[in-house]
Design a protein around this nucleic acid. Structure first.
Lengths: 313, 313
DNA sequence: CGCTGCTCATAAGGACAGGTTATGCCTCCA
DNA sequence: TGGAGGCATAACCTGTCCTTATGAGCAGCG
């Protein structure tokens, strides 16, 4: 029951030129570029990253050679980004930020035991929201060791009640007894298809009956997403296929296998890139709350309170 | 006049443990992990990336050692991700996607001459939107060579009229004569502050007069963002400091220097991570259109039409 | 039952990237 | 006219990642 079982997908150009890694400078080089942009000098950037000035000079130079672009204007009294360098640096910043989220998440997965704050979260929240929160928390309280356990809503509640976690995050319809909660955000399930699908060009909203009558790509029964959909349609959702992870559902939908129902959190990126298109729906209650939960009476204090305050919009 | 001149900022933990690059696997490893997730086998993933099976095996193993996490369940008939591996892979996917955007953008900056589609775009669009569009275009038309030139709105128009570009993207109030256009999206300028600023806790919307009376962190006169703000306030915006790039303005605002006015495109990430907070505003027309533009009479065809169709919501 | 085909693991060697120290040149400023 | 800070080059070292060659576990089939 663990996870990924993805269908074939016809996308991504694994064409010639070899992997991304040969065309994109590695993270260390991008980090260095950001430091140069911020500090205005190769030497200063080198010091900040704990390397020597010649190392920085050589690394920036080979990055420019690799990309075929002049990124930095060197002068005897400092270095500034060129115009294209500024643009490249902005794109690089996004890569580094994603890597920082990765790192924050990985670190939380690693430090299981001796953590000052033990968090349990549902898959969707752990995937899309939590790394950013952890990063923000680290910015304010750099020495707070956080541990993370991801699972379904029931598992999260269980861990809290067993005192194996201090704070939980779930997306669901109801809160288990013995737990207090606060709504931290709202989420909507939305219907998505590949851009080529007939529904993609629909202007008139889909009726609930139509949705219930159409075979859909769905998460397995028991997942939070599926529960909300079944309840909204009165237990009637017809699966085209059932997949055990959000990722697999997205991949199937992108490949054109059919319409899928997913959290808007999960498909924001795909919508922005037009890999998926949202289909308007009427009359169906696909909203759900994202909640922070904790054992009744143990109102969050210290790091837990800090993290909680970061999550509220 | 080129670019970045960032003020001091007290954030990011350049603390111990050395750079990100030592804690996060490099792009090649992340790419490999995604391939393993998708294909269900180390050997198959290795083949897809054009390396040998032992190389893949060793690389995954050292990634697991580096992170201190078991990512893959190996068996004599294939490999599957562990639960934590699935989570890590989802985070890795975001890093790789950011790198793909970086690559698409860099490639467009590089191929200046012999391109089938020459695009000119304003800075904001080039920074935040265009890489995604280029990636989507590459997915559909892998062999379309695109070149990109970024500049302010006037420069974009100039390039189009001089037949140095086929398609332009600008965010602005008006369209120069000699050019046709279509609105592809709507953008709003928003007022943001660091979370600690008094305005951050404001519930009651800010009046235009209040905004005009307060010194703000702003882009330089002549930028599209500044033009819209000045016009909305009747030419009255009072600068606290003027900076020459969106990035510098964001950094100043994050560090708490004061309130800033920026496109919501530019601060979406910062808002999500609570590094900045949006301040409600009333009575001020801060909306602006994002437009695709082209020389009158040369309606986009071929690759230009293709790209245009990807940008419309 | 043993062959064939798939999987992953290990071992030994080579290429290269990225780091270091040492040094030189340029420019601004006191 | 030093001195300080900036960048570049050269020579060398080391670790990482790749390769080829080989071994071993599990499945299906004649």
């Amino acid at each position: 029951m663990s996870s990924v079982a993805e269908p074939h997908q016809a996308d991504d150009g694994h064409g010639p030129g070899g992997g991304l890694a040969h065309r994109v400078p590695d993270l260390g080089a991008l980090e260095l570029l950001l430091a140069v942009a911020r500090l205005g000098s190769l030497g200063a950037a080198a010091r900040e990253l704990g390397i020597t000035q010649p190392a920085a000079s050589s690394r920036i130079r080979s990055m420019e050679r690799q990309m075929g672009l002049a990124l930095v204007d060197r002068s005897p009294r400092g270095s500034r980004l060129t115009d294209t360098g500024a643009l490249v640096t902005d794109w690089a910043r996004r890569v580094v930020e994603a890597a920082e989220c990765f790192d924050a998440g990985a670190q939380a997965l690693r430090s299981r035991r001796d953590s000052r704050l033990r968090v349990a979260a549902s898959m969707t929240i752990a995937e899309y929201l939590l790394p950013g929160w952890l990063l923000a928390l680290r910015a304010e309280r750099p020495d707070t060791a956080v541990s993370l356990h991801a699972g379904n809503s029931a598992a999260v509640a269980e861990r809290l009640l067993a005192n194996e976690a201090d704070l939980g995050f779930v997306e669901g319809l109801s809160v288990p007894t013995g737990l207090d909660s606060v709504v931290i955000a709202h989420d909507h399930l939305i219907v998505v298809t590949a851009p080529g699908h007939p529904w993609a060009r629909r202007r008139r909203p889909l009726a609930a009956s139509e949705l219930a009558a159409t075979p859909l790509i769905l998460r397995e029964k028991g997942s939070g997403t599926r529960q909300v959909l079944d309840s909204a349609l009165g237990g009637l959702a017809r699966p085209l296929i059932e997949l055990s992870s959000t990722t697999a559902v997205k991949a199937a939908a992108v490949s054109g296998a059919g319409p899928a129902v997913l959290s808007e959190l999960a498909v924001r990126e795909e919508l922005a890139m037009r890999r998926l298109v949202s289909v308007p729906v009427e009359d169906v209650a696909l909203a759900r709350d994202l909640r922070a939960i904790w054992p009744t009476g143990h109102r969050p204090v210290g790091p837990a309170r800090e993290l909680l305050s970061l999550t509220r919009g």
